[in-house]
Amino acid sequence: MEFFKKRKVNLPTFWETYEASFEVPLPKQLKEVRFVVLDTETTGFDYEKDRILALGCLALKNNTMVANESFERYLDQHFYHADNVEIHGILRTENRAYSSELEVLQQFLAFIQNAVLVAHHAGFDIKMINKALERYGLPKLKNKVLDTAVLYRRTLIRSPLLEKKEHYSLDELADKFDISKKDRHTALGDAYITAIAFIKIVAKLKAKKPITLKKLLSQRMRL
């Protein structure tokens, strides 16, 4: 017990501010809920070895986003693989403003607050962020999370003629919903595609049955 108390005392103020935002309960009406759609670009898929290279977030409320209310940071990672450059195209030599990981995490927490997080294959992004938090002795994210990959499957009709796939990539969603794939594989660009897909998915689910935040969240998430 003492151990926990001690840790709690040691948490930095920015974490406490973040934690305090959860004292306000989430609104019941879907259109009043603040969502933050996010995407990470990483050096690879290993939670232990790999690191976040870029983080993009976009706030979404009542189907509306403001260009300004977005968050896009490139992280200065000493740890670096060349293998993934082909996917995200982030080269260290590129002339960009880089921030330290801790700095970005701090700004990220201040940006998201108690928003409901949305990501495509969210489990991966959230775990990457949690791993990063862990490295600085911080607890896991406290936010509710929605995964567009899971939600999308729920929109598909149940028909013997349609074979559902196990996984749907963001590219497939973009094609399906006619979202331009410009800026694909940049963190904020992917977050934008995810945000539009999310809006369309919710609209589709709504057309089937009236939907609440609780129902959206009722999907089982493995983090």
Binding site: A67, S70, T186
Partner: peptide, 12 residues
């Protein structure tokens, strides 16, 4: 600070 979203809007 770079902002892919506003760049995208401007580009359109």
């Amino acid at each position: 600070m770079k902002n892919t979203i506003s760049e995208r809007i401007a580009d359109f």
